[in-house]
């Protein structure tokens, strides 16, 4: 009787595990489809010879062509004439925003969290107040400020704006993450004669690498997808970015949508490459060999 009961329980348990696995798989696939559907749709439009946006029920275009991708690569369409120059500008803005946000954020969190521990939370929370003002309303003050600094119509003006908006969040995350790094490590280093700069460079930065990678990617993505400040602060044709260029397509009823779709897919590559490049660094976490040492 008890053997039969036990066998039945095992059977129920097996079924439950299978149902859980199937449920998880279905949910995962549904989420994946949900997330990837817009990108898939964009690919369909990019491959369509006319850039038709209407979905006619075909899972693959009947007459796919790489014409739009070639148009982007060789700057063949009139809105994409300076695509690679604009791509370079976007990348420069993204990269510098990433580096400066990580640098300022890590220095700030180090100073607030490791050196001046008293009211550090108040300062980092106060910085977050920036997010209570809609960025839209800060664009004119920023425009004026950048003019006063002589930075108007330069890529540095956009970088400055991006970094301003990215740093408070970076500070918050890095400060919280920094609490996982034992303060005893700093104290031990200081006893061994390490200066604050050495503590920052040799202990703090390496152990904060996962959080810095996350912050860096977020800052890069923010800069990469930002449009308003780029549009308002940049005017010269040589300073324009892909975000500004892609927006021009929306102002035209003639737009063959395969070109912006192809340009957007190409434009999406750097963040993906960047994410995979730093993924290992993020996964390493505090359990890394370096931390244990």
């Amino acid at each position: 009787m008890s053997v039969a009961l036990s066998s039945r329980r095992r059977s129920i348990h097996r079924w439950r595990r299978r149902a859980d696995a199937v449920g998880s798989a279905v949910l995962s696939v549904a989420l994946l489809v949900w997330w990837l559907l817009p990108i898939y749709n964009m690919l369909l439009i990019a491959l369509d010879p006319e850039g038709e946006t209407e979905f006619k029920g075909d899972l693959w275009p009947s007459d796919p062509t790489l014409k739009a991708f070639a148009g982007v690569f060789f700057e063949g369409y009139w809105y994409l004439k300076d695509f690679w120059l604009q791509f370079g500008n976007s990348f420069f803005i993204g990269a510098m925003t990433m580096v400066l946000t990580a640098l300022i954020g890590s220095l700030g969190s180090f100073a607030l969290g490791r050196m001046w521990r008293g009211r550090a939370g108040v300062i980092s929370t106060a910085a977050l107040l920036l997010y209570t003002v809609p960025v839209y309303f800060l664009v004119i003050p920023f425009y004026l400020l950048m003019h006063k600094y002589g930075l108007n119509d330069t890529l540095w003006a956009v970088i400055a704006a991006n970094v301003t908006f990215a740093v408070p969040y970076a500070l918050l995350i890095l400060q919280w993450y920094g609490r996982l790094v034992p303060l005893e490590l700093d104290d031990a280093a200081r006893i061994d004669g390490a200066t604050p700069v050495q503590v920052y460079m040799r202990i703090y930065l390496p152990l904060m690498a996962p959080a810095l990678a996350v912050i860096g990617i977020l800052a890069f993505l923010t800069a990469w997808n930002e449009y308003l400040y780029q549009f308002i602060l940049l005017s010269s044709p040589g300073n324009k970015t892909v975000a500004i260029s892609l927006a021009t397509f929306f102002d035209n009823e003639y737009t063959p949508w395969n070109y912006p779709a192809a340009a957007s897919l190409i434009y999406a590559l750097p963040p993906i490459v960047l994410f995979f490049a730093v993924r290992r660094c993020i996964a390493a976490g505090l359990g890394s060999r370096r931390f244990r040492q």
Partner: peptide, 17 residues
Amino acid sequence: PFAPQRQKIVSAITSGV
């Protein structure tokens, strides 16, 4: 672009730059 040009002009005139 025609539509967003408005934002840029209004920003410029409002700020004086």
